[in-house]
C-alpha cells in the first residue's frame, strides 16, 4: 500500500510539472496567433489609436515573458487572474460552465459505462451470434459518425418529428433535477452513442482474449456455466484494460464535447474556450486548458491505480 501511495505522490508531482509545461505551450500558442486581444475585441472598428490605448490599459504592450511570469506568479498561489475583456474573475467565469460540463459528462457516463460493460460481457458471451454482429454494427456506426451529425439525427427524430424532447438544452433560470435531466437528455444520449462502442469493444476483446487461457478451459471442464466463466473467472483479469479505456472516454466526455455543446446549445466549458481563443483572452484560455490537462492527468492516474488495485500481482509484489 505504501508503494501505491508513493506512486500516487510521484505521479501528482509529475502532473504538476506537466501542467507547467502545458501552460508555457498554451501561452506561446496564443502569442503565435495573428492579432492580439485589442485587435480581436475592436474588430472591424479598430483604429490605431484605440488599439494602442487598449493595449496600454490591459498591459499588453509589455513583453511576452513578463506577462507570462506575472500570470505564473499569481497562478502558483491559486490566483488565475481576471478575464482581460470583462474583468470578471477567471474562477467566476469558469466555475458555472465547468460544473455544467461535469454534470453532462456525469449524466452520459452514468448511462454509458454500465451499458457498455454489460453489452461487452453479453457480446463476449454470445460472440459470433447475430446479437454480437448487430451490437457491433450499431455501436461502430455510432462511433464512426461525427457527433454533431448524431446530434442532428437525434434532434430530427426526437424533437422535430415527435416533440418528445426539447431541441435546445440551454437552461433558463433555476430548474429542478428532473427538468435538467429531461432537457439535457438528447445531448447526453449523443455522447453515450459516441463513447459506448469504444468501451464495449474493449470489454469484449479483453474478455475474449482471456477465454483462450488454460485456467478458463479448466473452469469450463469442471462444468462452470458460460456466464459464470466470464463474470467470475475472465472479468477480474480483464479489468485493467477496461478501466484504462473507461478513463480515456471519461476524459473525452469532459474535454471533447464542444461540438455537442454547440449543436444542443448547452453552455459548457468548450464554447467558453473557443470564444476565449477567438478573442485571445489569455487568462481564460490558460485556465480552461489547465483544467483539461489536469483532467487527463488525474483520470490516467486513476486508471493506473485502478488497474493496480484489481491485479493481485501488482497489489502484492514480491
Amino acid at each position: 500500500m505504501d508503494k501505491l501511495l508513493r506512486l500516487i505522490g510521484q505521479r501528482l508531482g509529475l502532473g504538476l510539472l506537466t501542467l507547467l509545461v502545458v501552460s508555457v505551450l498554451i501561452f506561446s500558442a496564443v502569442e503565435l496567433l495573428p492579432g492580439d486581444l485589442a485587435e480581436a475585441v475592436l474588430g472591424q472598428a479598430a483604429t490605431e489609436e484605440t488599439v494602442a490605448a487598449m493595449r496600454e490599459q490591459l498591459g499588453l504592450d509589455r513583453s511576452a515573458p513578463v506577462r507570462y511570469l506575472e500570470w505564473l506568479s499569481g497562478a502558483v498561489v491559486g490566483d488565475f487572474g481576471n478575464s482581460l475583456i470583462s474583468g470578471e474573475r477567471v474562477s467566476d467565469a469558469i466555475s458555472e460552465r465547468f460544473s455544467n460540463t461535469l454534470m453532462l459528462a456525469a449524466y452520459a457516463a452514468v448511462i454509458a459505462v454500465p451499458i457498455s460493460i454489460l453489452l461487452g460481457i453479453m457480446v463476449a458471451l454470445l460472440r459470433n451470434t447475430l446479437f454480437d454482429r448487430v451490437a457491433n454494427v450499431m455501436t461502430l456506426t455510432s462511433i464512426s459518425s461525427p457527433e454533431f451529425f448524431l446530434g442532428y439525427i437525434l434532434i430530427l427524430y426526437f424533437s422535430v418529428k415527435t416533440g418528445w424532447f426539447p431541441a435546445i438544452a440551454s437552461q433558463m433560470g433555476d430548474t429542478s433535477l428532473g427538468d435538467y435531466l429531461y432537457r439535457t437528455f438528447l445531448p447526453a444520449l449523443a455522447l453515450v452513442l459516441v463513447v459506448t462502442a469504444h468501451m464495449m469493444r474493449m470489454t469484449r476483446a479483453a474478455i475474449i482474449n482471456l477465454l483462450a487461457s488454460p485456467y478458463i478451459e479448466m473452469a469450463r471442464l469442471k462444468g462452470v456455466s458460460p456466464l459464470k466463466v466470464i463474470v467470475k473467472h475472465a472479468l477480474p483479469n480483464a479489468w485493467a484494460p477496461i478501466i484504462n479505456v473507461v478513463a480515456l472516454n471519461l476524459a473525452y466526455l469532459i474535454t471533447g464535447v464542444v461540438l455537442v455543446e454547440v449543436v444542443f446549445v448547452y453552455p459548457g466549458i468548450g464554447q467558453l474556450l473557443v470564444d476565449a481563443v477567438a478573442k485571445r483572452d489569455f487568462a481564460i484560455v490558460q485556465a480552461c486548458c489547465l483544467i483539461f490537462a489536469a483532467t487527463f492527468i488525474l483520470l490516467n492516474l486513476a486508471a493506473d491505480v485502478g488497474s493496480i488495485l484489481t491485479n493481485p500481482r501488482l497489489r502484492h509484489p514480491k
Binding site: Y152, I155, S159, V160, G163, P166, A167, I168, S170, M172, V262, V263, F264, V265
Partner: peptide, 19 residues
C-alpha cells in the same frame, strides 16, 4: 429571454419545435 444560439441548425429547429 434572449438566447445566443450560434449553430444555424439548432436555431432553426428551436423555432420549428416551438422552443
Amino acid at each position: 429571454e434572449c438566447l445566443s444560439v450560434i449553430d444555424l441548425n439548432a436555431r432553426t429547429t428551436a423555432l420549428i419545435s416551438g422552443d
